[in-house]
Simulated assay, not measured.
Amino acid sequence: MAPPHGDKSAEVKEEAAAAVSSVDNRPISTILFIVEALPLVKKFQLTEDLNSVFPKGVPWVRFYGNYKGLTVNIVCPGKDPALGVDGVGTVSASLVTYASVQALKPDLIINAGTAGGFGAKGASIGDVFISSEVAFHDRRIPIPVFDIYGVGSRKAFATPNLLKELNLKVGKLSTGDSLDMSPMDEASIIANDATIKDMEGAAVAYVADLLKVPAIFVKAVTDIVDGDKPTPEEFLENLVAVTAALDQTATQVVDYISGKCLVEL
């Protein structure tokens, strides 16, 4: 239906809707993986970017190449310059995501990584989840409206056909900057109705939402948070095997995406 004569706002809305529809119906061309580690580099036969697209001095590492008609970029935070440990957490994740989207213009973001799972919500070691929704559990701001902002709940990009094809589990993801879980964090995670918890997902979602890039979250369970083993011990014990499961599922996700449009996922 044509907008009423002289209704510029309606015209703008129609043009915007047409642009979105055009993008949704265009085959996915460029994928951006935001990851903690790099097992997928060999799987996709990617090359390290030695002439970095990122600012000089940052530790972020990018691998890139073509796989089944897709331009695949894998970016990880790299090592902390001072301490040499992996750059985990929400600050690194948000910075890397922002810089990568600006430089690489992806059609889709995939945040692939490990997570703690809750046995009470049906999670087991080695399970791979697609997150339906993400939120923070350690940004407590007990002031009206700021409290909602702190939680920062966001829907992940919906992929019903992908879920059906790969028969993956679905659960809500809660993000915080600590590996352990304090009683206050636990209460927030329960309020978030989360099945899994990690240290970067909601930060990636925040940036993806700001920049209007669809994002999906693929998380493999390394430890049962509400189980009887200490989290660091169980995480390290299962890391290698669970990373292999994540590698396999992430490859299946990309195989499914190849040749499809966003609306087909």
Rank of each mutant, 00 (worst) to 15 (best):
A99M: 14
A99G: 09
A99W: 09
S100Q: 01
S100P: 08
S100N: 02
V101P: 05
V101M: 13
V101N: 09
V101E: 08
Q102L: 10
Q102E: 15
A103P: 00
A103L: 00
A103R: 00
L104C: 07
L104V: 12
K105R: 12
K105E: 15
P106H: 00
D107W: 08
D107L: 09
D107P: 05
D107H: 07
D107A: 06
D107V: 13
L108I: 10
I109C: 03
I110N: 05
N111A: 14
N111D: 12
A112T: 03
A112Y: 01
G113D: 15
G113I: 12
T114A: 09
A115C: 15
F118G: 06
A120V: 11
G122L: 10
G122V: 12
G122T: 12
A123S: 11
A123N: 02
A123T: 02
S124R: 15
S124W: 04
S124E: 05
I125R: 00
I125S: 00
G126A: 01
G126M: 03
D127S: 03
V128W: 04
V128A: 11
V128C: 11
F129C: 04
I130C: 15
I130A: 15
S131N: 08
S132V: 10
E133T: 11
V134E: 10
V134M: 10
A135G: 12
F136G: 04
F136I: 08
F136A: 09
H137P: 03
H137C: 02
D138A: 06
D138N: 14
R139A: 11
R139F: 04
R140D: 13
I141N: 07
P142S: 05
P142G: 01
P142Q: 06
P142F: 03
I143A: 06
I143C: 02
I143L: 09
I143F: 01
I143S: 03
P144R: 05
P144H: 01
P144M: 08
P144C: 05
P144Q: 06
P144N: 06
V145A: 10
V145Y: 11
V145C: 07
V145R: 13
F146I: 11
D147F: 07
D147G: 08
I148W: 15
I148S: 14
I148M: 13
Y149C: 08
G150R: 04
G150W: 03
G150Y: 05
V151Q: 09
S153H: 06
R154C: 07
K155G: 11
A156F: 02
A156W: 04
A158Y: 15
T159Q: 06
P160K: 10
N161F: 01
L162F: 04
L162S: 08
L162E: 14
L163H: 08
K164R: 01
K164F: 00
E165R: 13
E165V: 07
E165Y: 05
E165I: 05
L166G: 11
N167A: 12
N167Y: 04
V170C: 09
V170G: 06
G171F: 02
G171N: 08
K172S: 04
K172L: 04
L173Y: 00
S174P: 01
T175K: 01
T175P: 06
G176V: 00
G176M: 00
D177N: 10
S178Q: 13
S178H: 09
D180H: 12
M181G: 08
